[in-house]
Amino acid sequence: MAAVLNSVRAFFTPQTFHIEAENPGDVVARENLLDRAMGPGRRRKSSEKLRKGRIPADGLALVARDNDGHVIGTVRLWNVEAGVTPEGLPLPALLLGPLAVDSLHEGKGIGAALMRAAISEAANRGHGAVLLVGDAPYYERFGFFAAKTQHLVMPGPFERHRFLALELKDGWLDGAAGMLVASGRKLSY
């Protein structure tokens, strides 16, 4: 009975977007969306220093598309080293960002769906933690908190209370300290 009820709800609830892997044809649409959503200063952020000249982590560049196939949302995750472990070893992690949704499509749950998809895919791929710089009230509902980043720093200015982490594996960030460093594959020109 529950399956029938869910299929009836699905029938009456129109799907206004879907999420899939980003493809090379999405570059212009993604960059235009990010420029509109983040403004002209988006390339000066500390997070950008970790992304510049790098390729997103394998399988972790996602877009939301409307029913006509237009990119209306984006999220990407990047390989970083989250400082070092207490033993002095580099600690692999992911840096999430930017997350953006076209202003014409805000309030439809697209950002939340992109977050859930990104977190799920990162966990499925065996990653230990995801870090980001963002608004705590928004990201806390996905399990991101500042407590796990207290001994980590970004390369450049950042607001401590906005530097958040989610452990995908319990205890992954225990004892981690130091500066985030880019570790992903370099972009070939």
Rank of each mutant, 00 (worst) to 15 (best):
A2V: 01
L5D: 06
S7R: 11
R9I: 05
P14K: 02
T16G: 11
N23G: 14
N23W: 00
P24W: 02
V27E: 01
R30T: 08
A37S: 14
R42T: 10
R43G: 08
E48N: 04
K49V: 12
R51A: 04
R51P: 01
D58C: 01
A61G: 14
L62A: 07
R65H: 04
R65S: 03
R65F: 02
V75C: 04
L77T: 11
N79E: 14
P86S: 12
P86M: 12
E87P: 05
E87A: 15
L89S: 14
G97F: 03
L99W: 02
D102P: 06
L104M: 08
G107K: 11
G109W: 10
I110A: 05
A113W: 05
L114W: 05
R116N: 12
A118H: 06
S120Q: 09
A122Q: 05
N124A: 14
R125V: 03
G128F: 02
G128H: 01
L131F: 07
V133I: 13
P137C: 14
E140A: 15
R141L: 10
A146S: 15
A146I: 00
A147R: 11
K148V: 08
Q150S: 02
L152N: 05
M154K: 06
P155E: 09
P157A: 15
E159A: 10
L164Y: 15
L166F: 13
E167V: 04
E167Q: 14
D170Q: 04
G171Q: 03
D174C: 03
D174K: 11
L180W: 06
A182C: 14
A182F: 13
S183T: 01
S183L: 07
R185V: 10
R185Y: 06
R185P: 03
R185N: 11
S188F: 10
